[in-house]
Write a protein that binds this DNA or RNA. Structure first.
Length: 289
DNA sequence: TCCCAGGACTACT
DNA sequence: AGTAGTCCTGGG
């Protein structure tokens, strides 16, 4: 029922691909999202309660299953209003970034849902990507809405109200381990204190960060990820093990602390710190720096 | 079998 | 202000 091809985004993405600014593999494998999986010639993913099959054909990228009324949603989701060529030209002034951008040329920062991003990155603490993906998937299956696509079942990430029905035990069963109580407390905090993540989004980066770190299980790294991947705070600079490695190798001493690395990145790359982080992360992990 | 990776919290200095 | 130990799970 939802297998009609969309042409709403194809035309735009076609141009983007020609200028090397949109490559699905780089977008989905650079550590920012957990709900896109390889399928046939592309990826199938769930976002905003919608499923699409995204693939590249010749010099066109199609979103099969996207509805006309969701045109604007996908436009925003893939950040299509932004000129990544300009961003790259600025960052390429740095020799290390120039090299990193060669690898991750088609990266775009997805505009994801704040609640889903918050919970997903709480799960990411001291965890590996396949395990995080499994836990997020299990949570969606148990508490989210079912969506059919191409004769397969998919599940939207649950709303706050839906996830409020989960006990700590339920969340442990989903594979979240010691993070289960953090998730339950975050959901409870949002409901009890009537927290609107969209309001936090309106604050400046530092203020928003403080608010996010009031959630248990949210430290500097997780907060930076939520700011960057769901609140368009592009001056955030999440430092995970890979970014730590590459920064210590190419920019700083091998024993510099996480907080120093974070400050250095924010100062060096400014409003483009988040984009720089994505290129550096992808380069470091692909090349096992 | 053990050991390791992977961030945040707690409880110390 | 900085830091050792602990939390959980899967894979080598």
């Amino acid at each position: 029922m939802m297998t009609q091809k969309t042409n709403v985004n194809c035309q735009t993405i076609q141009e983007l691909k020609k200028s090397s600014e949109c490559h699905l593999e780089h977008i989905f494998e650079c550590g920012q999202c957990f709900r896109w999986n390889k399928y046939e010639d592309g990826y199938i993913g769930v976002a905003g309660g919608k499923v699409v099959y995204a693939y590249e054909k010749d010099d066109v990228i199609c979103l099969e299953g996207a509805k006309e009324e969701d045109k604007n949603f996908w436009w925003e989701y893939f950040d299509l209003g932004r000129d990544y060529g300009e961003i790259k030209r600025e960052l390429e002034k740095d020799e290390i970034l120039k090299e990193a951008i060669k690898y991750g040329y088609g990266i775009r920062i997805l505009k994801q849902e704040p609640f889903e991003t918050l919970i997903s990155f709480i799960i990411s603490a001291n965890n590996r990507i396949p395990m995080i993906k499994r836990a997020v998937e299990n949570i969606s299956i148990r508490f989210g809405d079912r969506i059919e696509f191409r004769g397969m079942e998919f599940y939207a990430f649950p709303t706050v109200e839906q996830l409020a029905r989960a006990t700590v035990g339920d969340l442990e069963d989903c594979g979240t381990g010691f993070r289960a109580p953090y998730i339950a407390e975050a959901v409870r905090k949002i409901i009890d204190e009537k927290i609107d993540l969209e309001e936090i989004k309106k604050l400046d980066t530092d203020e928003a960060m403080k608010k996010l770190m009031e959630f248990k299980g949210v430290g500097p790294k997780v907060a930076d990820c939520v700011l960057l991947f769901s609140m368009q705070k592009f001056d955030a600079f999440p430092v995970d093990v890979w970014v730590k490695k590459i920064m210590q190798k190419f920019y700083l001493a091998p024993d510099v602390s996480l907080n120093k690395i974070r400050q250095f990145g924010k100062n060096k790359f400014g409003d483009l710190a988040g984009f720089a982080q994505q290129y550096l992360f992808y380069y470091a992990r692909e090349n096992k720096v």
